[in-house]
Simulated scan of single mutants.
Amino acid sequence: MSLDTTRDFIPVRIAVLTVSDSRTPEDDRSGDTLAARLEDAGHELAARAMLHDERTEIAAQLREWCADPAIDVVLSTGGTGLTGRDVTVEAHRDVYEKEIDAFGTLFTHISIAKIGTSAVQSRATAGVANGTYLFALPGSPGACRDAWDEILLFQLDYRHRPCNFVEILPRLTEKQRRK
């Protein structure tokens, strides 16, 4: 991994969705963590919302943001656990055209170093829909920091080599354009 300083940084437009039945905008530490980190990295906070753990509402919000040309990436936090109310992963998968399988694997690997075998309870996932990247992260600020600091910071930086999500962003809808 390296940073290619001959390439210019390209900011991406990122929406943050917090999924919680108990949090309010005033105590949304995970959403605040993601918003601060993405802005500190030079990206744009394009939208922010909070929803209850309702699969259809989450999927509808994801679809709305995927249809918005002013949003390149959606980061959701919360609802990725194993309880009956945790439906964010299912909502994401309702929207995905393609899943980024290795994201969950890499997130689990990083989590094991921090929380040991408790990492097995995370269902972090990622995918692509309508030319937009979607990432479902656990609801803890620590998990959001880990996902951002150890994966997304690099993959959402055009200068990151040997490859990154930003350089293929314009190609995500190639099949749609060929029709």
Score class of each variant (00 low, 15 high):
Pro25Asp: 03
His43Met: 02
Tyr96Met: 00
Ala59Val: 07
Gln61Pro: 07
Val73Asn: 01
Thr80His: 02
Asp27Ser: 13
Arg29Ser: 09
Asp72Leu: 04
Thr33Leu: 10
Ala59Thr: 01
Arg37Gly: 08
Asp28Trp: 10
Glu26Met: 05
Val73Pro: 00
Ala119Gly: 09
Val95Arg: 02
His109Ala: 11
Pro69Ala: 00
Gly42His: 12
Ala70Lys: 14
Arg85Ala: 14
Val128Lys: 08
Thr117Gln: 15
Thr117Met: 15
Cys66Gln: 00
Ser118Asp: 05
Val95Lys: 05
Leu62Lys: 08
Asp101Asn: 07
Ala113Gln: 15
Arg123Ile: 05
Thr83Val: 13
Leu62Val: 04
Thr24Gln: 10
Gln61Gly: 03
Val89Tyr: 02
Val120Glu: 03
Gly81Glu: 13
Ala119Pro: 06
Asp28Leu: 06
Glu54Ile: 15
Asp86Lys: 01
Val95Met: 02
Ile100Ala: 03
Arg29Thr: 09
Ser111His: 00
Gly116Leu: 13
Asp53Trp: 05
Ala119His: 10
Ala46Met: 01
Gly84Lys: 11
Glu26Ile: 03
Arg23Val: 12
Asp86Phe: 08
Ala67Tyr: 01
Asp101Lys: 10
Glu39Tyr: 04
Ser22Ile: 08
Met50Asp: 04
Ala60Lys: 14
Ala49Asp: 09
Arg85Gly: 06
Pro69Leu: 04
Gly84Thr: 10
Gly31Arg: 04
Asp53Ile: 07
Thr117Asp: 14
Trp65Thr: 09
Gln121Ala: 04
Ile110Met: 08
Glu54Ala: 12
Asp28Ile: 11
Thr108Ser: 14
Val95Phe: 05
Tyr96Arg: 05
Thr108Asn: 12
Ile112Met: 15
Leu75His: 01
Arg85Trp: 14
Arg63Ser: 10
Cys66Tyr: 06
Leu75Trp: 04
Glu99Phe: 11
Ile58Glu: 04
Ile115Tyr: 14
Leu45Asp: 01
Gly81Ala: 12
Gly81His: 13
Arg37His: 11
Arg37Cys: 08
Val128Thr: 13
Ala36Asp: 02
Thr117Lys: 13
Ser76Lys: 00
Asp28Arg: 09
Leu34Phe: 14
Ala67Asn: 13
Gly31Thr: 08
Thr108Trp: 12
Thr77Ser: 05
Arg123Lys: 06
Val73Lys: 06
Ser22Phe: 00
Glu64Ala: 13
Leu51Lys: 13
Val128Ser: 11
Cys66Asn: 02
Glu90Trp: 04
Gly84Glu: 12
Ser122Ile: 06
Ile110Lys: 11
Cys66Phe: 04
Thr132Ile: 01
His92Met: 08
Ser76Glu: 01
Leu62His: 06
Ala91Ile: 07
Thr117Ile: 15
Gly79Met: 09
Ala67Cys: 04
Thr108Val: 11
Tyr133Lys: 01
